[in-house]
Design a protein around this nucleic acid. Structure first.
Length: 480
RNA sequence: CGGGGCGUAGCGCAGCCCGGUUAGCGCGCAUGGUUCGGGUCCAUGAGGUCCCCGGUUCAAAUCCGGGCGCCCCGACCA
């Protein structure tokens, strides 16, 4: 393996790509714009999936699977939806050697086909709510792609629910946004800002879109998850109706919400440093790597045996552990490699430790001596458990501090442009502009409204762009 | 789709201007030895449609024409 990564400050995009390739999270595929998720990356995704899936089940959802192919006419039924997705559809026109009567769209998202099915299944208020999630791949024909952040095919979950009332649908959309925020903060150690999308940025076909926005290491924003209140738009397009208690025919109210393999990119960019990945302990495929150290063959046998015994102890304690007993590499090489791959805790075991009946614990989030300490052999499991929890807290605290330190408030457009050009980050402003104003700002500065944050206390201020008084606050940033 | 860069061993590159033996270097890989508490060192070895098609020439990785592909930067998006 070649030695140094490019640093984040000299070339952030290159650093990002190199970390992913060299940590073996993913690789490029022979098809442009697609990627192969390698075992290490997929193990990370599986942990993400399990943590999310558990939360979905806890909130009353069940999983199902809807087909990959969608009749073209379905996509066209909801006006905003087709306008939003038409440019990025992959369309199948031939099958079995013959041209199809109606082209099939490879799903870019499944609102339409699920809407069609819901219309079949829902008859009465007693059938509601319907709370279904699916884990699937989707395809969007993208011009410019980037590993995990934007690929033509990606994996995700999409929740689709139907409710009897507008209030219930709104509650559901907000509840699932909270689930995403909870997942990101408590599993991925990523602090987020919850808020509502602007009209310009909302999902094609939604009444309202909600988002959790995270700040990447280069201070750009990334939408890590979204939740939409679809109102009755899809209910009307697909005729999803039910009889209420008064025997009145009513349209249902639907929601949808999704989180994708893009969060892997967020984990890379939020926590990574110039040595490589720093994986949040609860999601890391390998939480602890044990590197045995020996000088002579007599030591080797004892040390490697001890390493495996320690591994067994940790494994019984529910820790995901790996012993790196390869003979062809020196310990120093292994330290660097596992740091690149982001393993949160490393255990070193050498002859000195055997004499002292101890091991050395090193934490990934603290370089050098500072992050290293010895613990008695008997306390390995508890020591590791405590340390993993600490690493999680420390990653979260670092990311949170970074987010706060790079969130700025401005009161004029001049100041806005100045801050964007010099410091970057999130800019929090009072906002009373129009859609046109928003688009103009985007054209002039590349910054977009990431969200209207929920945490605004409702106080009134002056819009930095129009000078009007308003209680609305927006967060602007450059975004992926 | 616009701008830039690039296709030579698995990866990164040199050679190309100025055509001429057997196409080279580093990493990686294989074997043996050595080393091992922060990217060991040595030896030997395997590995090539020089992106593709056509042309010029006694002779093309090298010159000419056409194509294809990839990466980076800009307008759309989870």
């Amino acid at each position: 393996m070649s030695e140094k990564l490019p640093t984040r400050s000299e070339n952030y995009a290159e650093w990002y790509t190199q970390v992913i390739l060299r940590a073996e999270l993913a690789d490029y595929s022979p098809v442009r714009g697609c990627m192969v998720i390698r075992p290490y990356g997929y193990a990370l995704w599986e942990n993400i999936r399990n943590a999310l899936d558990r939360r979905f089940k806890e909130t009353g959802h069940v999983n199902a699977y809807f087909p990959l192919f969608i009749p073209m006419s379905f996509i066209e039924k909801e006006k905003q939806h087709v306008e939003g997705f038409a440019p990025e559809l992959a369309v199948v026109t031939h099958g079995g050697g013959k041209e199809l009567e109606e082209p099939l769209v490879v799903r870019p998202t499944s609102e339409t086909i699920i809407g069609y099915m819901y219309a079949k299944w829902i008859r009465s208020y007693r059938d509601l709510p319907v709370l279904i999630n699916q884990w699937a791949n989707v395809v969007r024909w993208e011009m410019r792609t980037r590993l995990f952040l934007r690929t033509m095919e990606f994996l995700w979950q999409e929740g689709h629910t139907a409710h009897a009332t507008a209030e219930e649908a709104e509650e559901e959309a907000r509840r699932m946004l909270d689930v995403y925020a909870d997942f990101l903060e408590n599993e991925a150690a990523i602090p987020v800002i919850k808020g509502q999308k602007s009209e310009i940025e909302k999902f094609a076909g939604a009444v309202r879109s909600y988002t959790v926005e995270a700040m990447m290491g280069n201070k750009w924003a990334l939408q890590a998850g979204t939740s939409h209140n679809l109102g009755q738009n899809f209910a009307k397009a697909f005729n999803i109706r039910y009889l209420d208690r008064n025997n009145q025919l009513q349209y249902v109210w639907t929601t949808s919400w999704g989180m994708s393999t893009r969060v892997v990119g967020a984990i890379v960019m939020v926590h990574g440093d110039d040595q490589g990945l720093r994986l949040p302990p609860r999601l890391a495929p390998i939480q602890v790597v044990i590197v045995p150290i020996w000088r002579q063959d007599v030591d080797k046998t004892r040390v490697v045996e001890t390493a495996h015994r320690v591994a067994a102890t940790l494994q019984e304690g529910g820790i995901r552990v790996h012993v790196d007993d390869r003979e062809e590499h020196t310990p120093g090489f292994k330290f660097n490699e596992w740091e690149l791959r982001g393993v949160p805790v490393r255990i070193e075991i050498g002859p000195r430790d055997l004499e002292a009946d101890q091991v050395v614990l090193a934490r990934r989030d603290m370089p050098g001596k500072e992050g290293r300490r010895t613990v008695p052999m008997a306390e390995v499991l508890s020591g590791v458990q405590v340390l993993l929890a600490e690493v999680h807290q420390s990653l979260f605290a670092q990311a949170k501090r970074f987010l706060e330190e790079n969130t700025h408030e401005v009161s004029t457009y001049e100041e806005f442009k100045e801050v964007l050009a010099t410091r970057g980050g999130f800019i929090r402003v009072f906002w009373a502009g129009s859609d046109e104003d928003e688009i103009r700002i985007k054209e002039e500065t590349k910054a977009t409204i990431r969200c209207y944050p929920f945490d605004h206390d409702g106080s009134e201020g002056t819009c930095f762009y129009t000078g009007k008084r308003t209680t609305r606050v927006a967060i602007f940033a450059r975004a992926y």
